[in-house]
């Protein structure tokens, strides 16, 4: 094997369930047996961590539950929720599926634009929505887009299922409400109304294979000039992907003309405190985030 294969590679068992129920049963059993288990889908995080992390830091891993053979997780379906159209993505839906599924392309072109900005084709064919959510990177691309679409995740375990709105899913940097034994089975998103202003903008060093300095997704709907819905997801400006609830509260129920830039900027200042890191500075991120939010709001 590879000269730098981490110690213990051979000890890690892999189970390849065919159904969600089977995957949950395996996870629950591992939990009861106190075995260190990890879910595996596209491997864009798990496998890189296993191979590039210093051996002394690598978490021992007894069991990997491979989800790529669970067909239920790659389904895309449609449902009506209180008269509104929703799309439901299995957790294993890949970015490449978003780019090639006719229904998604027609209903929510923003998801196609977002998916095109994730790594490059070889990452898009492997990376999954649930993986993007579960790893909880504040620089995730999928998460802000799903958040702006009022995403709700369905978490399933051996004991049952629960739903959590995406804007309540992240607790802190890389910490989520996902409990041991749970997996993300579905993500439900609301299809924006015809005429909605839907924004996706990723600002990075280059177009492909870049991690964002700032990324913003926005959905603005109006009825006779009044903003009836202003939903956002913004990445790389806080410890978690942020929904900018303060801007939403400020904008909904008002006309765009009644909003002023200084007030919106002040609301953003209260919500996010971007940091300096290898990719950008806090000051630049805040500047860009404010400009993108204002553009998303403007007709």
């Amino acid at each position: 094997m590879s000269a730098h294969a981490p110690a213990g590679l051979a000890r890690t068992e892999m189970v390849c369930p065919k159904t969600i129920a089977e995957a949950c049963a395996v996870l629950a059993q591992a939990h009861r047996d106190k075995r260190a288990a990890s879910l595996l889908a596209g491997g864009t995080d798990v496998i890189v961590d296993r191979h590039l992390m210093p051996i002394e830091k690598a978490r021992p891993l007894d069991l990997v539950v491979d989800l790529t053979g669970v067909d239920e997780l790659t389904a895309i379906s449609e449902r009506d929720v209180a008269g509104e159209r929703h799309l439901v993505f299995g957790g294993g839906v890949t970015y490449w599926q978003l780019r090639t599924d006719r229904r998604v392309l027609a209903a929510i072109p923003m998801l196609d634009a977002m998916a095109k900005d994730v790594g490059a084709v070889q990452i898009q064919t492997r990376g999954t929505l649930a993986g993007n959510i579960a790893t909880a990177s504040p620089a995730a691309d999928g998460v802000p887009a799903l958040m702006a679409l009022d995403g709700v995740v369905k978490l399933v375990s051996e004991g049952g299922a629960r739903t959590v709105p995406l804007d309540q899913f992240f607790l802190a940097y890389r910490k989520t409400v996902l409990a041991a034994g749970e997996l993300i089975a579905e993500i439900d998103v609301r299809v924006p109304l015809p005429g909605a202003r839907v924004t996706w903008r990723k600002v990075g060093t280059r177009l492909a294979q870049a991690i964002s300095k700032v990324a913003l997704a926005g959905v603005i709907e109006e009825e006779r000039g009044t903003i009836t819905r202003a939903r956002f997801g913004v990445a790389s400006v806080a410890a978690v992907t942020h929904p900018l609830g303060g801007v939403r509260a400020l904008a909904e129920g008002k006309t765009f003309k009644a909003l002023d830039r200084a007030t919106v900027d002040a609301a953003i200042d209260l919500e996010i405190k971007p940091i300096d890191d290898v990719r950008s500075t806090g000051a630049y991120r805040l500047h860009v985030a404010k400009a993108l939010v204002w553009r998303a709001l403007a007709p």
Partner: peptide, 19 residues
């Protein structure tokens, strides 16, 4: 390290052989 897996391009450094 690109290869095709079931007809789509993937990076073979990110695929576990068990998959």
């Amino acid at each position: 390290c690109s290869v095709m897996l079931d007809g789509v391009p993937v990076n073979s450094c990110l695929v576990a052989v068990g998959q």
